[in-house]
Amino acid sequence: MRDLSPVTSSHRPTQRNRPKPGGVWGLFFAAWLALGVTGVPMQAQESSPVAKARVVLATNGAHRGSAIKAAVVVRIAAGYHINAHHPSLNYLIPTEVRFSPSAYAKVMKVIYPTGRAVHFSFSNTPLSVYEGEVPIGLMVKVGRTGKASEIVLHGQLSYQACNDHACFAPTSIPLVVTVPVLPANIPLKPAHAAIFSRLRFN
């Protein structure tokens, strides 16, 4: 069923007759090619991640037995979008954040922002998407037990990105949240206020 018939090297574009420019004429020739005068496509095909993500805490740490706020800050490359967690059409793949619980902490709740309704040329109806920088809220519950000075949780962000005329395959990127555990008598200090002001945890 997955038989891949042989493709010989002769099927590949030949390099044999490529002129070997040198000196001044070589420069002219190279410039001629670079300018695309010949119509030879000069596009490079490189893939780079459309979305990057980091996890930040709303405080400088947590006390044992408490719950703290965290956020997955997703940065989406300009010109692209990823589907919101609740996409407007049922065939679209939603953005999701998942964390595996550890013995000492777990993510209790993931708070997804509402997507922006954007109209694309390929859809008659506006689609609910995330663009630019998007924070996704996390409520992390730290257990009462344990002696470690910090707790590490591993998770992943799954998304599917498109621009106005093409899409990338669904993909996921690993997430790590490190929670420093502070003694109960040390007060917690707020952090990343600008990010958390954009999230509604209630």
Binding site: L92, I93, F122, C162, H165, C167, P170
Partner: peptide
């Protein structure tokens, strides 16, 4: 193509 790809469906 893929069913989850809007431009493909178009």
């Amino acid at each position: 193509w893929a069913t989850w790809c809007g431009p493909c469906r178009l």
